[in-house]
Design a protein around this nucleic acid. Structure first.
Lengths: 167, 167
DNA sequence: CTTAATCCGACCTGCTCACTAGGATATATT
DNA sequence: AATATATCCTAGTGAGCAGGTCGGATTAAG
């Protein structure tokens, strides 16, 4: 399993998609509502949304107090999935010496390292895929569907029972 | 860090690259030599090579006893990096409901799940990148370089000291 | 002033990664 | 035959981290 999206990334993206669907609502959307719609823990979502709010630049803005909640900081078409995932999961790097950007800094000795080209290409493929999609793309994909129905999703943590051989 | 290559994948690929470089040697290459050249633990390499040997079809073949060792089961240009990585790391799947192949089986209820398209596209990007490269591509990339010099590589486990904020 | 929300940090618990240890078996060389 | 050099096999283990929970402080609407 070379691609490992933690629940941070998974839930966080779902949170952002939810916010995108409610972007043109008059009121901000509360985490309580999102937690219910997405069947996620409120306390855990609070941790995730903190990352999104404190990101530079921020991806969501909050309103405190009763009838408060969250909004996207920008329209859905201006927020790429790459931004979201990087905030939640950290930089896209298969290993420490293949971090985005400066690769030669950490791997100084290693001109002869043949495998780094491999990981760099994989990394770039992922980055380009994520950076070429926006929230609007994800929301628009099935816009005709139910407006308020929960967006179910089976995650790894739901299926501890299944034999790992099935993976 | 959405892309997570464990040491299994990292060391295993280096092992295979080493074998590819010695593919036209008259003798099989011993793990002891590889461990020394790549600065890796012999006992750990034994575990990794077991996966490669028991893969279906096998990626390496072994010769037991003194002067024994391992060889690639096929020429380097017929072994894709995708094969290697899948054997070592398991299937390329960002999460359980986005495993390669049948995705609808596990996520049955979930037609409304918007985020699965995202993860499926990322998964396919990685798979295509890995499947389009062979061992020969990696070895050939810097063939003029030192023939027997160790291929150094800094891995995550080498740098536990570094602050995680640097990631 | 009560209720509903965001905000904050500490804590916990089980799992997995990344090995190590210790041996059994096979074969080439002396 | 004896020895050295390999592959082969299974168990165990220690640290680190994912994936949360919990309790409370702050802010604002009705």
């Amino acid at each position: 399993m070379i691609l490992r999206v933690s629940t941070k990334g998974e839930y966080g993206v779902r949170l952002m998609v939810d916010l995108a669907r409610h972007y043109y609502s008059s009121r901000p959307r509360s985490l309580t509502d999102i937690a219910q719609a997405e069947q996620l823990s409120l306390a855990y979502l609070e941790q995730l949304v903190k990352l999104l709010r404190e990101a530079e630049p921020p991806l969501v803005v909050s309103t405190r107090g009763a009838h408060g909640g969250y909004r996207l900081s920008r329209p859905p078409e201006e927020i790429t999935m790459g931004e979201i995932v990087r905030v939640l999961e950290g930089p896209i790097a298969p290993m420490i010496c293949a971090t985005e950007g400066e690769m030669t800094q950490i791997c100084s000795l290693l001109d002869s390292c043949k495998t780094k080209f491999l990981w760099a290409r994989v990394r770039d493929a992922v980055a380009q895929t994520l950076d070429s999609m926006t929230l609007a793309d994800l929301v628009g994909a099935s816009e005709q569907e139910t407006q308020n129905a929960p967006t179910h999703f089976i995650s790894i943590s739901d299926i501890r029972v299944a034999p790992s051989s099935a993976l």
